[in-house]
Write a protein that binds this DNA or RNA. Structure first.
Lengths: 318, 318
DNA sequence: CTGAAAGCGCTAACAG
DNA sequence: CTGTTAGCGCTTTCAG
């Protein structure tokens, strides 16, 4: 049999008689033959690699998105190639360049903010490009995510409705974490519309998020102990803060309310359930992967997921 | 200038005059040219992809290993391609096959237990193969990890030295999590040598690990409330158990001792620091990547890291 | 320092 | 259903 027949059998394309198919299978297995996809990719201009670019793997949000995406991609015979940018636009550009050199079947990357060169590369890629996590801005092609501004605003509204007024924000100190920034902006905008100004802010970087949540909470409460609500930019620091408050015996949510963000399942194991909003990370991973699997570049698909407030036990009932 | 000259400039190989180099750079940038690595890989039989195969991304251990590996690989111009097996040998084999089809520059994969077909493929790969996390067994080529049996044994010895005798083990219900199994085996062996039998066992699967830690602890203590030590197979369920115990007002570590495994930095934010042993995940990722970067297939390199007990505040001082 | 020729191992597109 | 013929876009090798 010719190499061509072998190729047809291994790819499951074209009509091949059952007899030759069996012979091919037997032979390839006996020889331990693994077809060379590099040659295959070059010949067919079709590649099963999908670039997935995330800022970090330290924040559980991204491994979860990646897991969900990976499941859908695998089912379609595609493979993720992961790149980590560390929230650094320069690194994002380099990683993207390196990945596009493999002519992937699609690109999934976090955020809507990218350098000019990155945008140019993505527009020229000719494959589905899905920007994930965020929908507040212009997408290059497809986008799947949530509106962080709206999420921040809705939480602010819920807090105000519950009667809290002396409110602080605790978050990460990362100039390029645009989504955290947008949550805070949406949050402040709604407070401002109600004539309420933020009564405190605290930012951290590095280290154990749980411990930092604890420290920041102590710091912000030490500075001004009449605060009645603390909004954390993620659930892990929120959990740390909650544990600190419980240790202090603060009355929650009567005296002090708390909320985080992400909807991590960590929440379920805390002594008191922290209020949060789901980041929809599994749906985002799945939907983004589906768009890539569909394979239509320039679809402009836009999926906005609407996370709801999970009030838990750390916000007073209005 | 010929395509050849362009190739030389872009790869930084061979002597090219400064003038032509500049012209090439300008032209490629103007055209947004991204060289095709598929063609390059086929022509040169050299590829910058490294297969990294892990059982899961839900357990923070693996994203951390991946992050550390990714840093070292990136610095050497290599890219990780991630595969997730879900602790399933069949999936491991398929993922491995798919990755080897790309003729990667190296393979990093978790564990020493693999199916016969997987082992054959790895032996035939002709590139560095690094089995990570575990050193209790035969490696195909290189291995970087810790001895889980020893880790389990050392913890058992520490517990016995502290005077605890009615000891339970709480872990995950995963037949293919060989490392958790080895920790438990090492643990039981040392207990047995001292004439102590496990006084309880509890296993879980799925769901929020923190919440499961809570539930399992409640279950095991409900079944037999004279237990004086609980050994958890990971820090997250350990943290859940610790929070449950603190909520119950149990005297820790006087009445009840606790320990986890992993050395996650989650530990730092708990009200009481849980005893644990470092899984050395960053070192493992770094060392494994270094071996791949060195590029010597069949080196048989073996790096055994020696995690130490971090006693925290949940084991009595002997 | 620069160029020309000859593939790398497959698959698309035709022929039989 | 099976085989043949051309490349895919680079890099290797060898000449200038």
């Amino acid at each position: 049999m010719s190499e061509m027949t072998v190729s047809r059998v291994l790819r499951g394309r074209g009509e091949v008689s059952e007899a030759t198919r069996a012979r091919v299978i037997a032979a390839t297995r006996r020889l331990g033959y693994v077809p060379n996809r590099i040659a295959g990719g070059l010949a067919s201009a079709r590649v099963n690699l999908v670039a997935v670019i995330v800022p970090s793997l330290a924040n559980m949000i991204f491994p979860e998105v990646l897991t969900a995406a990976s499941e859908v991609l695998e089912a379609a015979g595609l493979q993720p190639v992961v790149g980590v940018t560390g929230y650094d636009p320069g690194r994002e550009e380099r990683v993207l360049y390196d990945m596009l050199a493999w002519r992937p079947a699609g690109v999934i990357l976090a955020g809507l903010e990218h350098g000019a060169a990155a945008r140019a590369m993505l527009r020229a890629a000719g494959v589905p490009v899905v920007e994930i996590m965020d929908v507040d801005g212009e997408a290059i092609d497809a986008a799947v995510g949530i509106s962080h501004r709206r999420v921040g605003g809705e939480l602010a509204a819920a807090i105000l409705a519950a009667g809290y007024r002396r409110i602080a924000f605790l978050g990460t100190l990362m100039p390029f974490d645009h989504r955290a920034r947008k949550r805070m902006e949406g949050f402040e905008a709604v407070l401002a519309a109600a004539g309420v100004a933020l009564a405190g802010r605290e930012f951290y970087s590095g280290g154990s998020a749980l411990a930092k949540g604890r420290e920041m909470t102590e710091a912000v409460m030490g500075r001004r102990d009449d605060l009645d609500f603390l909004y954390y930019s993620n659930d892990v620091i929120g959990a740390g803060g909650l544990l600190w408050c419980l240790g202090r015996g603060l009355a929650i949510p009567a005296r002090l309310g708390l909320a985080g963000f992400g909807g991590l399942d960590l929440i379920d194991g805390l002594p008191v359930r922290l209020a949060t909003m789901d980041a929809c990370r599994r749906e985002i991973g799945r939907e983004a992967a589906r768009i890539v699997v569909a394979g239509r570049a320039g679809s402009g698909a836009r999926v906005e997921l609407a996370p709801v407030l999970i009030p838990g036990e750390t916000i007073r009932r209005p």
